[in-house]
């Protein structure tokens, strides 16, 4: 058993469907046509290459190679995360990498060893596929978390100074901003978690059902993976903020203003 194959013709039709949003954008005169075309081309090329690469990787299934590839994924995710935020790579790449590594690896370990009880926890199928889901799904929240946090301090400098000037340590004065950032980062996930199953059939479940698994098995996977994604998200959001404090503040607790990258306005 397995999913029904997609013919080349079907694939081309599927890809050409993208012309519908492009047409709408053209009609509304919104300048996203170029970026849509570039993004969809990148998507297609990356996926084809990664498909070929994963075929090879899964056949090889060498623990060391699998771990290395996972680390490459984490590095790319860290770059993507900082690039999308308005923060400078120089200050944030290392904190982002450290927090994504710790949270993803920890959860992968628990997932593969305890929840799935695999004989080989480095099996590419699980390590890379599950690792990718954990990373990909926590990235958006990490970006919201870090960006909200630093913008909130910059915007509310008076409040930050007020707390410091009345005896708070830098960490105490930062806590309200950490709370706000953490909440803002997790809110979208919590909202979408509540609609799973009815409004949205999450991708993993759809994939498993198409691949021939019973819906019940798919649901068991889905529940545990959603929980794992939530934990990775929460951990990586808070760790990214905590790890980035040192390079972003001076010893007197003052925000280093040149951590922000001025976004080019279109």
């Amino acid at each position: 058993m397995g999913a029904h194959d997609i013919s080349i013709f079907g694939l081309i039709i599927g890809y050409l469907l993208l012309l519908i949003p492009v047409a709408i954008a053209w009609w509304l005169k919104i300048k996203i046509i170029k970026s849509t075309l570039i993004a969809s081309l990148r998507m297609a090329v990356q996926l084809v290459l990664i498909g070929l690469f994963l075929e090879y990787l899964f056949k090889l299934n060498n623990p060391l190679v699998n771990i290395s590839w996972l680390l490459v994924m984490i590095v790319v995710a860290s770059f993507a995360m900082i690039r999308t935020s308005e923060l400078k790579l120089k200050n944030f790449l290392l904190p982002a990498f450290a927090s994504l590594s710790i949270s993803t690896l920890l959860l992968l370990f628990i997932f593969n060893l305890v929840i799935l009880d695999l004989d080989d926890i480095f099996d590419a199928k699980y390590l890379i596929a599950i690792g990718g889901m954990l990373l990909g799904n926590s990235l958006k929240a990490d970006i919201i978390g870090a960006t909200t946090f630093y913008k909130s301090i910059r915007r509310n400098e008076v409040r930050y100074h007020y707390l410091l000037g009345n005896g708070a340590t830098a960490f105490e004065a930062l806590l309200p901003h950490i709370r706000e950032a953490f909440k803002n980062a997790l809110d979208p996930f919590i909202a979408s978690m509540a609609t799973y199953g009815i409004v949205s059939l999450p991708g993993m479940m759809t994939g498993q059902i198409l691949g021939g698994s019973s819906p019940l098995l798919a649901i068991k996977y889905q529940i545990t993976i959603v929980a794992a994604i939530f934990v990775v998200t929460a951990l990586s959001v808070i760790l990214t903020i905590l790890f980035s404090l040192r390079p972003s503040f001076d010893a007197a607790g003052m925000l280093n203003k040149d951590i922000f990258r001025e976004k080019k306005s279109k």
Binding site: V158, H161, Y162, L164, G165, G167, A168, A251
Partner: peptide
């Protein structure tokens, strides 16, 4: 004064800023 003494000073001070957006 270094970072630590500023911390010490801040523990001794009550600071009332001119800007009134000091809390919510």
């Amino acid at each position: 004064a270094d970072a630590q003494s500023f911390q010490r000073i801040r523990q001794l001070t009550a600071y009332i800023p001119q800007d009134l957006d000091f809390a919510d």
